[in-house]
Simulated assay, not measured.
Amino acid sequence: MKRTGKKPATDRNFVVALSRGLDVLRAFQPNDGLLGNQEIAARTNLPKPTVSRLTYTLTKLGYLTPVPRFEKYQLTPAAMALGYTALANLGIRHLSEPFREEVMRATGGAVAVGGRDRQSMIYFGQSRGSETVGVQLDVGSRVPIATSAMGRAYFWALEEEERSSLLRDLREHYGSRWPKLRDGLERSGETVAKYGFAISVGDWHDDIGAAGVALRLNDGTGPYAFNCGAPAFRFTEERLITDIGPRLLAMVRNIEATLGGMAPQFKKEAGKKLKSGGKVARVAEGIR
């Protein structure tokens, strides 16, 4: 999801009440089930009286159902229909499925495609086999941009203005934790420049190793990103660099070719990126 550079406080067209209502719906995660006003307030950083009014309104509109016994709410089919409609409109999810399945079978890893939602990437397509029981992620799951392979690949695929805006969001979101996360994100830029893909080994989750590759489209949407992950003892850093990453990169290039674009020559592209003083090196300075 792209976000504009304008802050809501200075944007006369920004409807704060609508934004807060959507924040309440966004607070529900795939495995939550029921949430109360206090839990929603904690997740959204909204005052509890405001949350109470919003949940009341969303109930009246049919997007939430109250469960009086527990003094909590759950999403209704009407709310979930919004997400399923969005999924149906994401052609890349369906187009990429056979490619994802092929890489899943070849590597034994879980292969997913996702897009940005604030400081996270959200899965909207997932291919997972019996060998990936250690990766408990599915459609609707979120992974952080700063530490996941998918998020890092997405980050370095952004245009400079969008990347700068995202950097401000990440600094604000992580606060005192940002310097450590910034270092990992900067190193991932060098990996993307050298190999064409990002990796994450224990950075997001101690037991997960993954590679990530961004997909750029010519229709103004995205970018999106793919990842391929498995338990870290199987997807070591060496295997990610020599096997998993190149396979995933080739998969994304094939998807680009299927969409009608010209698949770039990987070796030539990597050589250009490795030149000293290149774009990645300049951009990395802005991470600080």
Rank of each mutant, 00 (worst) to 15 (best):
V24K: 02
A149Q: 05
A157Q: 02
R118C: 08
G202N: 09
G140T: 00
V280W: 04
R239Y: 06
Q136R: 15
A157E: 03
V51K: 00
S148F: 01
G129K: 03
A281H: 10
F28V: 00
E285Y: 11
R216W: 04
G245H: 04
P47F: 05
V103D: 00
G91L: 11
G151A: 06
S164F: 07
L22D: 00
H205V: 07
L248C: 06
L35M: 13
R239L: 09
R100S: 06
G114K: 04
V51A: 00
F233A: 08
G83C: 03
L95E: 10
V15L: 11
W156Y: 08
R53C: 07
E162V: 02
K194T: 13
S130I: 09
Y195F: 15
F235E: 01
L274S: 06
N218H: 11
F70Y: 15
M121Q: 08
L18C: 12
A110V: 04
N254W: 09
Q38M: 14
Q38P: 10
C228G: 03
T76S: 03
K268R: 10
G189H: 08
W178V: 10
E160C: 07
A230R: 05
A153Y: 01
R3C: 10
P66V: 10
T258R: 14
A263I: 07
L46H: 01
K60Y: 12
G108A: 05
E71L: 15
E172V: 11
V192K: 05
L95P: 02
A232N: 11
Y195H: 15
H173L: 12
K273I: 04
A106I: 06
F266N: 09
K60M: 15
L249W: 01
Y63D: 00
C228P: 00
V139Q: 01
G109H: 02
S276F: 08
I122M: 15
P49L: 03
F99E: 07
L185M: 10
Q119F: 09
E269W: 12
T221M: 11
G196H: 01
L61D: 05
T4S: 13
G140P: 00
S96R: 00
R128M: 09
L217S: 07
D32G: 01
P30E: 09
G278Y: 08
G36A: 02
P246K: 11
M104T: 04
L166K: 00
G220V: 14
I40K: 00
F155S: 03
G196Y: 01
R3V: 11
M121H: 03
R93A: 09
Q119H: 14
A211G: 04
N13T: 14
F233C: 07
L18Q: 15
L217N: 07
P77L: 06
M262I: 14
G115F: 04
P264T: 02
Y123L: 12
G202Q: 08
P144K: 09
T10Q: 13
D203A: 10
M80Y: 05
Q265S: 14
E102V: 09
V192W: 08
L95Y: 11
T50W: 05
L95G: 06
L217M: 12
L248A: 05
N13R: 15
R20N: 14
R100I: 06
T57M: 14
E186S: 13
R3T: 11
T132M: 07
L181N: 06
V280Q: 05
K272N: 13
D169P: 04
R187K: 15
M1C: 13
P8K: 11
P30H: 06
M150F: 02
